[in-house]
C-alpha cells in the first residue's frame, strides 16, 4: 500500500478508533455495567462516575507510560547490562566506568556545560532586549514575527543556513560566507570556522541562540505587558530614567517568567542533537552528550555505554523536573 494511502487510512482509523472507544466504553458503562435504573440506580450512577475518569484517561496514560515511563526504567536496566545489543548479563557499573574513561565523554560533558552556561543566558537576554524594544515602536509586531520566525525552521534547516554563513573558501577565490567575506575585507585570512577547537562550540551555539531568542521574546513580551502600569508611573513620578525603570522596576516583576524561559531553554539545550549532528557531527571537539549517545547506540552498537550516557542526560534534567513538579503543585493549591 502506498504510504499516502496508509497515512489517510491511519488518520481515519485512528480518529474513528478513538471516538469509537470513548463512545462505546461510555455506553457500556452507562447501559450495561452500571445501568441508571432499577433498584440500585443511585448507587450505579455514582459507581459509573467513579470509573468514567479512568476510561477517559486510559489511552493517554497508556501511551504516556509506555513511551515515557517504561523507557526510563528500561534504559536504567540496559545501562547496567552487557554492552552488546540484547545482552542479558548484569555488569553493574562497568558501563559507567567505561564511559568515564573515555575522553570523548568528558569532551561531550564539558561542551554540554558550556552550552548550558551560554545558550539559555544569551537567548533570554536577547529575548528580553527584543521584547522591551519592540514593545515601544509602531512596527514592533512585524519586527517580532521576523525575530520569532527561526522557531519554525528545523534544526537541520538552520544548520544549512548557518553553514553558508560560516562557509570558507581558499584565499585566492571570492568568499561566499559572510563571516569570511568580512574577515577578508578587513585584511585577514579566511578561516574554516567550524574546525577551530573550543571556539567552534560557540559558533554552533549561535545557531540555537538564533532559534530560541524568538521564543524567549514572545513569552517575556507577554510578561512585560502584564506589569501593572501604576508601578511604572510611580517610578517615573519619582524621577527614574528608562534604564532604571527597566532594570529596577520591570525586570524584578517578571523574574518568575524569566526563570521559566531560562529552564525551558535549558531543557532544549540538554537535548541538543540535530545541530551538532548536521554541522560537525561531533568532530573538532564539538561533541555533546546527545550526539555522543547517538554515536554509541547506533554507530558503535554499544547499548551499555549509550544507555549510560542517556542516564546522564536524565540526571541533568532531574533538578528541573523536580522544580517544575514542585511549582505546578504549589500553583494548584
Amino acid at each position: 500500500m502506498s504510504p499516502v494511502l496508509l497515512g489517510i487510512f491511519t488518520i481515519v482509523l485512528g480518529v474513528a478508533g478513538c471516538v469509537g472507544y470513548f463512545w462505546a466504553s461510555n455506553l457500556i458503562l452507562d447501559k450495561v455495567i452500571f445501568p441508571a435504573k432499577g433498584p440500585n440506580a443511585g448507587r450505579n450512577i455514582n459507581r459509573a462516575n467513579m470509573v468514567r475518569p479512568w476510561l477517559f484517561l486510559f489511552p493517554a496514560l497508556f501511551v504516556l507510560t509506555l513511551y515515557l515511563g517504561y523507557p526510563v526504567i528500561e534504559t536504567l536496566r540496559l545501562s547496567l547490562m552487557e554492552r552488546v545489543p540484547g545482552g542479558s548479563e548484569f555488569v553493574g557499573l562497568a558501563n559507567y566506568s567505561q564511559m568515564l574513561d573515555e575522553p570523548k565523554f568528558w569532551e561531550a560533558l564539558r561542551n554540554n556545560m558550556l552550552w548550558l552556561l551560554v545558550v539559555p543566558a544569551a537567548s533570554t537576554a536577547f529575548g528580553l532586549l527584543a521584547a522591551q524594544l519592540t514593545d515601544r515602536i509602531a512596527w514592533g509586531s512585524i519586527a517580532k514575527s521576523l525575530i520569532f520566525m527561526p522557531m519554525a525552521i528545523s534544526f537541520v534547516g538552520a544548520a544549512v543556513i548557518w553553514k553558508l554563513v560560516y562557509d570558507a573558501r581558499p584565499i585566492e577565490t571570492e568568499q561566499i560566507g559572510i563571516i569570511n567575506a568580512i574577515i577578508v575585507a578587513a585584511g585577514g585570512e579566511p578561516k574554516t570556522i567550524l574546525t577551530i577547537p573550543f571556539w567552534n562550540n560557540f559558533f554552533l551555539m549561535i545557531v540555537l541562540i538564533w532559534i530560541q531568542t524568538g521564543f524567549a521574546m514572545v513569552i517575556l513580551s507577554a510578561a512585560l505587558r502584564g506589569i501593572p502600569e501604576e508601578t511604572v508611573e510611580a517610578a517615573i513620578v519619582d524621577g527614574a530614567g528608562p534604564f532604571q525603570i527597566f532594570f529596577k522596576i520591570k525586570v524584578p516583576q517578571i523574574m518568575g517568567t524569566i526563570v521559566v524561559v531560562w529552564t525551558t531553554i535549558t531543557i532544549v539545550v540538554l537535548k541538543v542533537f540535530d545541530i551538532v549532528f548536521a554541522m560537525t557531527n561531533g568532530q573538532w571537539e564539538t561533541q555533546v552528550l546527545a550526539n555522543y549517545m547517538y554515536d554509541k547506540l547506533f554507530r558503535a552498537n554499544d547499548w551499555g555505554v549509550g544507555s549510560a550516557a542517556a542516564m546522564v542526560i536524565m540526571l541533568l534534567v532531574t533538578p528541573i523536573l523536580v522544580w517544575n513538579v514542585y511549582n505546578a503543585r504549589k500553583e494548584m493549591k
Partner: peptide, 15 residues
C-alpha cells in the same frame, strides 16, 4: 508535568 521534560533520548533503544 514531570513527563514534559523527560528527554526522549531515553526512549530510543527500549522502544
Amino acid at each position: 508535568v514531570a513527563a514534559l521534560v523527560v528527554p526522549l533520548q531515553l526512549a530510543l533503544i527500549p522502544l
